[in-house]
Simulated scan of single mutants.
Amino acid sequence: MSFEFLKPVSDAVQAHAMLQPQHAIGNVIQIHTEHTGLPQLDGVQMVLIGVLENRRDENALLQLKSVDSVRKQFYELYPGNWSLSMVDLGDVHPGETVQDTYYVLKQITAQLLIKKIIPVYLGGSQDLMYPIYRAFDDIQYMINVVNVDCRFDLGDIEAAISSRSYIGRMVADQPYNLFNYSNLGFQTYFNSQDEIELLERMFFDATRLGVLDDDMRQAEPVMRDADLVGVDMAVVKAGDTAFAKANPNGLTGKQICSLSRYAGISDRTKVFGIFEIPIDATLTGAQLIAEMIWYFIEGYNYRAGEHPVDINEGFLKYRVPIEEEVLTFYKSNKTGRWWIELPFISNVNNKLKQHTLLPCTRKDYELACDQNVPERWLKARRKNEV
């Protein structure tokens, strides 16, 4: 089993957990320590794992030694009204080569997916998303990936994989299991026009920072359709992390916590990762990452069990004629969330081989009523016809 490669949480961090008040997370969570060994995972819903690999980060000069600053801040928080069993499994240390680390991370993720346990990863460079994605190969066909990042990270697929090029490898490498890639929070001046045009040609989704500033609710349907969610901490503006290499513009601390909650509340999300944690992470930044984990768990606690969607019970159906199409929307009586149907197309090689329900917003329904076809529906259909 690959869990044997997990190194225990340090004695100093364990002592910090024990010093917390009785009801703080540090005294509630089970911790992998050298003394107690790996906790049993029976009945566990979520695990926390550090991955200390950053050799493929083009800007990293030193190895990431630990994510203990985040752990300490997380242990100091108080849980919400949760009925969640969570374990801190410790850290994956860098292997002799980066490929060794990738192999271990892929195996660990695959085992957790089989056990239906959600891993929350604290990294390291964001190219770690690639082996996590590959863990789905033998478990689930066609997955959706969401990257919360100021950059697309498509990169040059001919070059070696790096923290700026792993998405391109997801697209190009066999087996082809990437159905949709969505970016949340990109800033145009960090992305080449070639990448922007390539994203459009592949009918992938990208939501600019300014759009999220206007209405964060636009991100909820994107997260609702995600199997794997990764966050690059460079997407958060410098003023809210105090990281030395952060960007002047970006998401606020409040916004990134909202996105973390959306990821947690998504019935589909199976893996959540927070990457590009700097080796000299500030107390402010560590506190924010701890709060992101807290909000992800909070969202998970309020999952509604609406994936896969059963439209035969508890849904209102709306049919909207547009030109030669009739768009069918569904609204959940339970949560008020909306979906739009992407119908089976019999004369093409339909990738999903079924009627597909695409998460959307009430605004998409209102646009359809005004005779405007929602953009995400158009992209999903075109991609499905390729």
Rank of each mutant, 00 (worst) to 15 (best):
D213P: 12
L198D: 07
F243W: 09
H16F: 14
A60C: 06
A135M: 11
R224H: 07
M292D: 10
V44M: 01
V236Q: 10
S2M: 04
H35I: 12
M1G: 07
Y318V: 03
P119T: 03
S69W: 06
I114S: 08
G26I: 14
L84C: 06
L77A: 06
A172P: 03
N54G: 12
G210W: 13
G253V: 15
E298S: 11
L48Y: 07
A286P: 08
K379G: 07
S83V: 08
N372M: 11
V222S: 05
G80E: 02
P343F: 00
L184R: 10
A135K: 01
D137K: 06
R337L: 03
M223D: 03
Y102Q: 03
N191Y: 00
Y295H: 12
E276Y: 07
M216C: 02
R71Y: 05
Q174T: 14
R337F: 03
K351L: 03
L198R: 07
S165A: 10
N191I: 15
R201A: 03
P119R: 03
R217V: 10
P374N: 03
A246F: 04
K245D: 11
M129E: 09
L19P: 11
E96W: 13
V171P: 04
D156T: 13
D173L: 06
K254A: 14
F190L: 11
E158C: 06
E197W: 14
L41G: 00
S258E: 07
L327C: 00
M233N: 14
L48W: 08
S165L: 11
A110P: 09
E325I: 15
R382Y: 10
V70F: 03
L199N: 04
I256H: 00
